[in-house]
Simulated assay, not measured.
Amino acid sequence: MKLSALTKVAAISGLAALTLTSCAANEQAPAASDGETSSSSLAGELIGAGASSQDAAQNAWIAGFQTANSGVTVNYDPTGSGAGRETFQQGASSFAGSDRAFEAEEITAGPFEACAVDSGIVEFPAYISPIALIFNVEGVESLKLDAPTVAQIFEGKIAKWNDPAIADQNEGVELPDLAITAVHRSDESGTTENFTDYLAAAAPDDWSVGAIESWPSEFGGEGAQGTSGVVAAVTSGVGTIGYADASQAGELSTVEIKVGEEYVAYTPEAAAAIVDASPLEEGRGATDLAITLDRKSTESGVYPIVLVSYLVGCEAYADPANAELVKSYFSYIVSEEGQSAAAEAAGSAPITASLRDKITPAIDAIS
């Protein structure tokens, strides 16, 4: 995963340019709510890069953190998870946002140039976003579906809304003899990867292609660019169904997903609950809190179709100033205040107190 010298210089230069363009925006950070200036002595510049899924949340976190710490400038470049991980590894940023944790092999291969020699990494879930199944069928306000039925709809094997597989789970609902148009992302997408990861885990006999970022053309359906494109296509279509970040579902009808013997609607609480119900990956260091999402969980009240995005930093930094800034910023992000700010700005699911209790010691270990 090494960048060439030229690429590394370009990455650093790009982030430096981001810093210059962001300073004006950072000066717009709101004043402290009590009208007093920040009494924090923390000062410096903190650079991060990575997952675009965190962009709205990062903007909210930056505003809140800089309000409390007026001497700090934080810049986050939403270049995407892969680019963010590489930038962090090469020392061009002090932290990364990523829609997946580093693989164990990637950590072993290293190096992480912002970190002290022989330092481990700190990574933990910081942003949880439920993915909603949205649909547009006149006269139908809500539906209940299990994973095999969802998989067959999106593979094109179930073609009509009154198919028995749908009707049997929705007694009393008048389903039309209407063709289904399944809308998918046309671009490479972490949302698609998480949606299909759920299908691969929960309906392995009915979903044939595993967890994928790019939609297979052989499944047909209608492609749309980005979350906004999927929402627009479902809204303007007839008999449409798609998957999208729940915060963008708006007034569209949504699907309750079968979990165990019950059907669960997406809520922030249900999305956060699936993370709590999932185990940590084995063989990781004490500060590496990578989650193995249990998409097949039968626990009551969990919603299994979620995107979980991580923050990544060093356990020990080569530059102590970076350690202090990252430690403080991460602490704010996982606080109740920080998670509430993200929920309001981005519609994310705040982490639970139980998960916060696991994360806090990892952040405290940063030096």
Results as ranks from 00 to 15, higher is better:
S217P: 05
D146R: 01
F195G: 02
Q152C: 12
N170Y: 12
A203Y: 02
S98W: 08
E218T: 07
G110Q: 12
F219W: 06
L178V: 10
G91A: 01
T108V: 13
P148Y: 01
A116V: 10
I158L: 03
G190D: 07
S142I: 07
G84W: 04
H184T: 02
L143N: 10
A201I: 07
A109E: 13
F102D: 12
D205L: 14
I128H: 09
E193L: 04
G220K: 01
K144D: 11
E141W: 05
Y76L: 10
L178A: 12
T196M: 01
P130K: 01
S94L: 03
T73Q: 11
V74G: 12
H184W: 00
G120W: 13
N136G: 10
F195W: 01
I134D: 12
E171G: 15
S129N: 07
E213F: 07
E188G: 07
G110W: 05
Q169C: 15
V173S: 14
A104C: 12
V150W: 03
G82E: 11
G220L: 05
A109Q: 10
T73H: 13
A179G: 06
I158K: 00
S81L: 11
G82M: 11
I107R: 06
S189L: 02
I153A: 08
A211H: 06
G190I: 02
T108R: 09
